[in-house]
């Protein structure tokens, strides 16, 4: 038996929104410790890894590890019916052929319940090592969203370079070149406005802007985003969910021939 109750159901809705443009069918893995997702886009160049600790839930019971195979467009349709302040309850039997979802609101006294058929999804799982990266940058997630959205008008590839000068985003296309430089900035009282750059050695990598823009769908989950880069390795773009979990995206760099 699996049963989980999340007072702020909106967190789960935002998690669904953060991955539904990258993948269609996904397994949510339930264990005694957490809910987690690992999946790749159809081109296998981007990977999403999500974790939400059992401590995020008001009630969490998982007798036996199980995978809930979900079609995200359908899940998203159901979450459209969830109110902003609703509590979410998930329930599944060990056989896991259907998932019960409940949205409760004490104020309005409403309880909505849905039964969703589950699917058996065969998905390739990758072992992602916990690497020490050469550059690690923390910045406001809204700022990162604005930069990758704005640069799309210049081209379809974004060069991200981390040097002593700061973190530079560049895009080149038919109309010319655009550069946006972020310097380290810890002046603000609010920590979430800080830009911190931790650089062991300079790194410069190219990425598809289309994917970087897909990743910014996670912006509502976290005021800050952490970018990690090493030469020749996929970039990690992490949105921490308070102290309770994260959504991490990995994207293969574009290599010059």
């Amino acid at each position: 038996m699996f049963e989980a109750r999340l007072a702020n159901g909106n967190i789960f809705k935002m998690i669904v929104e953060s991955i539904r443009e990258l993948v269609v069918d996904v397994n949510i893995d339930c264990s005694t410790e957490e809910l987690s997702i690992q999946c790749m886009d159809s081109a296998h160049v981007a990977l999403v890894s999500m974790s939400l600790s059992q401590s995020a839930f008001d009630h969490f019971r998982c007798d036996r590890s199980l995978s809930l195979g979900l079609n995200l467009p359908n899940v998203s349709k159901i979450f459209k019916m969830m109110g902003r302040d609703d509590t979410m309850v998930l329930k599944a039997e060990d056989s896991a052929d259907k998932l019960m979802l409940m949205f409760e609101n004490d104020k309005s006294g409403t309880i909505a319940d849905f039964e969703l058929k589950l699917m058996a999804i065969e998905a390739e799982q990758l072992g992602v090592p916990d690497t020490a990266y050469k550059c690690s940058i923390s910045m406001p997630s809204s700022e990162f969203q604005r930069i990758v959205r704005d640069l799309q008008v210049m081209g379809d590839t974004c060069k991200i370079s981390c040097t002593k000068e700061g973190l530079k985003f560049s895009a080149t296309g038919q109309i010319g070149t655009g550069n946006i430089l972020m310097r380290q900035n810890v002046a603000s009282e609010k920590e979430e406005d800080h830009v911190t750059i931790d650089m062991e050695e300079p790194v410069e990598l190219n990425f598809a802007l289309r994917y970087l823009n897909f990743f910014t769908k996670a912006t509502p989950l976290s005021p800050t985003v952490i970018l990690k880069m090493s030469p020749g390795l996929p970039i990690v773009i992490e949105y921490p969910i308070e102290q309770l979990g994260h959504v991490k995206y990995y994207l293969a760099p574009k290599m010059e021939e």
């Binding site: 790749m40 081109a43 296998h44 160049v45 981007a46 990977l47 390739e124 799982q125 990758l126 072992g127 992602v128 090592p129 590839t157 190219n206 598809a208 390795l233 996929p234 990995y250 293969a252 760099p253 574009k254 290599m255 010059e256 021939e257």
Partner: peptide, 14 residues
Amino acid sequence: IFFQCTLRSYFQRK
């Protein structure tokens, strides 16, 4: 001219 490898070339299959 760019090319992009799949993540399989960076990470091991589980």
